[in-house]
């Protein structure tokens, strides 16, 4: 009985350890593949990078990255290879040159222009809205005063 219990304990302890070991098995090559793959867009799924995509093309692209890294190509060379085949589109982050600058600047530009026109409009409203002349409040009559006092006490 005690033998069986010990055996179960060993099995239970071994499972999480083996899972942990699997995580630790990631080699430098795997890490490099992941880092490059995360920067490249899956051309089939468009919104995912090729590391996260399950598409066969993304899988093959990861294979190409791995092969090229094993051959001694640098990360920049591998990115340049994909860029030469698919153009800027393959990059998850559009490079900051030429018309691409518009992608980076346009949201802030829109915000500034929109903010400017909003500011102008609001100041116009404030200026053009006539303020009512301040009048003294009418005094409270006894009945109303008593009602308020009663409501405050209750």
């Amino acid at each position: 009985m005690r033998m069986r219990l010990t055996l179960w304990l060993v099995v239970l302890l071994a499972v999480p350890v083996s899972l942990f070991a699997a995580v630790q098995d990631e080699t430098n090559l795997d890490i490099q593949v992941r880092e490059i793959a995360k920067t490249l867009r899956c051309t089939v799924c468009q919104t995912e990078n090729i590391w996260e995509s399950g598409a066969p093309l993304a899988q093959q692209m990861r294979g190409v990255i791995r092969e090229r890294l094993a051959l001694g190509h640098s990360e920049a060379e591998i990115r340049a290879y994909f860029l030469s085949r698919y153009g800027d589109y393959i990059l998850m982050e559009p490079p900051k040159h030429g018309v691409n600058w518009l992608i980076w600047v346009a949201p802030f530009l829109l915000l500034l222009i929109g903010g400017f026109f909003l500011y102008k409009e609001v100041t116009h409203w404030v200026r053009d809205t006539p303020t009512p002349p301040s009048q003294p409040l009418p005094p409270l009559d006894d009945q109303a005063r008593k009602r308020i006092e009663h409501e405050l006490e209750s």
Binding site: T43, V44, P56, L57, Q60, M61, G63, V64, F82, R85, Y86, G87
Partner: peptide, 13 residues
Amino acid sequence: LKGQLAIDYGVYG
């Protein structure tokens, strides 16, 4: 065989 040819030609479908 490995999709290399398609990638070389920038094929995506």
